Computed example of a mutant assay.
Amino acid sequence: MTLRDGGTIGLGLLPDIADADALIVVDAAELHAAPGAVRVFEGAEMDAQVGRSKGSVHEIALSDVMTAAALSGSRPERRALIAIQPEILSWGTEPTGAVAAAIPDACAAIAGLVDKWTR
């Protein structure tokens, strides 16, 4: 298992994605939910979510890299987005209280996907 902070490097992630057997992305996303809400999107649901209107620079980069992976035939079959509803969209280095409180739920979602995919 490899962990990578993709930040906003966009297409620079393509080689990592092409080499992956599976992909889990954790990011902020507009879910039209309360701040800190966590939702998991797998496969085609992930593709649809990252293709929607963008609420942050992260989503734009993720949309670009996932489209490039699909076009190059290197998009992992097993892929998921664990999305957390942000409280604010301004730049910062620390999560807001609501997002920080959601981190254990996001970690549980990651563990659930890894367990499901490795059975």
Rank of each mutant, 00 (worst) to 15 (best):
Thr2Phe: 00
Gly92Leu: 01
Ser72Pro: 00
Ile24Gln: 02
Met46Asn: 07
Leu113Ser: 06
Val25Asp: 13
Val25Gln: 13
Leu11Lys: 08
Leu13Glu: 05
Ile88Tyr: 11
Glu42Trp: 06
Ala34Leu: 14
Ser90Asp: 15
Thr8Trp: 02
Val114Phe: 10
Asp16Tyr: 14
Ala20Thr: 08
Thr8Arg: 06
Thr96Gly: 15
Gly73Ala: 08
Ser63Cys: 09
Arg39Gln: 10
Lys54Cys: 07
Ala102Phe: 01
Ile84Trp: 01
Ala33Asn: 04
Met66Cys: 12
Glu59Met: 13
Pro35Tyr: 11
Ile60Thr: 14
Phe41Thr: 01
Arg4Asn: 02
Leu3Trp: 07
Ala61Thr: 11
Leu71Lys: 10
Leu113Pro: 03
Ser63Met: 04
Ala44Thr: 15
Ala61Cys: 14
Ser74Tyr: 03
Leu71Thr: 09
Glu59Thr: 04
Ala83Phe: 03
Gly6Asp: 05
Ser63Glu: 05
Gln85Leu: 00
Asp5Arg: 03
Asp105Pro: 00
Ala98Glu: 06
Asp47Tyr: 09
Trp91Met: 15
Val40Gln: 04
Ala33Ser: 14
Gly51Ile: 07
Val114Thr: 14
Ala69Ile: 02
Ala80Ile: 02
Glu94Leu: 08
Gly7Phe: 04
Ala22Cys: 11
Thr8Pro: 01
Thr8Phe: 04
Leu31Asp: 02
Ala100Asn: 05
Ala70Pro: 00
Asp27Val: 09
Val114Ser: 08
Thr8Tyr: 02
Ser72Met: 14
